[in-house]
Design a protein around this nucleic acid. Structure first.
Lengths: 218, 218
DNA sequence: GCTCTAATTATGCAAGCGTATAAATACTCC
DNA sequence: GGAGTATTTATACGCTTGCATAATTAGAGC
């Protein structure tokens, strides 16, 4: 009978970094399409065009891969938001507006990102390490936001005491998170850009300033 | 050898409603403690002091049980928030404030609720039935909020056009959701009542009115 | 081109999963 | 108090999962 039926899979030896990235990317695809439960080692491997065993070669356990994927997503979102700042005007108010708008638009506001994020958040309660990772990310985000807020207030000629900026950062962080959530969950029931507009308007109200560079304080 | 070693489990026949509730409660315990992945039929059954097969007697499939549990959580939170309204003063502004404060305090703002909610949200993207269930819940909450907003604006002598109240409902819903999230995830880094205060202040700023009954419009 | 090694494949296993189904039993009704 | 039935237990099956490990091979270095 066919002597060469079971031919062994040919393969290339990739660099360690490249493989890791590919595996993480494949993981994200799986999670995006069928949720965390759909991200099995076999499915991930198939999508990365690799056999399942290789995953263990790069990640001690599946949870490590999942954790790496989580960090990758969070990092990606952070980088994308920072990119928006790079391209923003110099005026602090414009920068804050750009930051908000970036976080409430593509590609950050995406159902796939939410699925990943939610899947991990659900684990935070059970896994202290994951909880710490999350808290760091949250505080980092809020600190970045607080700086933007302080500078925007100053540019508008308003006082920016730590007491107030902390509270403002908490509230504005909530606005961004909440709108991001709404958009990810049911983006189709909102007009294009509606959430970003709503967010900017709400933030302007909270801070009592306009985020249009032209407009002044009060 | 011991003739009576394997004694069959004794049991009581419970009413249908009671059993369903018990099974849902057991499911919520499992999800809260170890995430959705920890909610296996066997674990749930054990916690409800019942054998696994019984679950299928009340729920055609495990997914049905999970869906029922999700609806139960959402319903519970909604009811708790509505209860707060029942006990609130008559003034529409007080009512809105009470609603916000209730959503940003115990027992609604609780890590367990977040774990449950997040675990389910992660499924929304993959499961259309769950997505529909969620959208209904979300829109119901927002509609209730929009009514409170409209009446608060009117009581303060401000115009309340549908265009504006819709936007306000979106923004304020985001504030509540976002702060709820922050509180659930890291309640210990906030002072008692800080999040509720922050939320009320932000909402007052967005609406341009005071929510203290004494204070007037503008 | 040969050798050596690290990267990759292939195979298997034990555990846990959801579900199906038959046997047992607690309760209801007469 | 005996019969009948709806509820519950018990058992088993087929799959899938994550993980381990042995066998292979691509590519680097000499």
């Amino acid at each position: 009978m066919n002597a060469q039926s079971a031919t062994r899979k040919t393969f290339r030896r990739e660099g360690e970094d490249k493989r890791r990235e590919d595996l993480i990317a494949a993981t994200l695809e799986c999670v995006a399409e069928r949720g965390l439960a759909g991200a099995t080692v076999r499915e991930i491997a198939q999508r990365a065009d690799v056999t399942a065993g290789l995953i263990r070669y790069y990640f001690p356990t599946k949870d490590d891969l999942i954790g790496a994927a989580y960090r990758a997503v969070m990092n990606r979102m952070t980088v994308q938001a920072s990119d928006a700042l790079q391209n923003a005007a110099d005026d602090p108010r414009s920068r804050l507006q750009a930051f908000v708008t970036a976080n409430l638009g593509e590609p950050i506001m995406d159902p796939h990102n939410l699925s990943l994020w939610a899947g991990f958040i659900a684990l935070v309660h059970a896994d202290p390490a994951m909880a710490a990772a999350h808290r760091d990310g949250y505080l980092g985000f809020r600190d970045e936001l607080e700086i933007l807020i302080r500078e925007a207030l100053r540019a508008a000629g308003k006082p920016a005491e730590p007491n107030h900026t902390r509270r403002h950062a908490i509230a504005i962080n909530a606005i961004i998170d909440g709108l991001w959530l709404e958009g990810c969950l049911a983006g189709d029931i909102f007009d294009d850009g509606e959430l970003a507009e709503t967010g900017v308007a709400a933030i302007e109200a909270v801070l009592g300033i306009s985020l249009q560079a032209e407009g002044g304080a009060q």
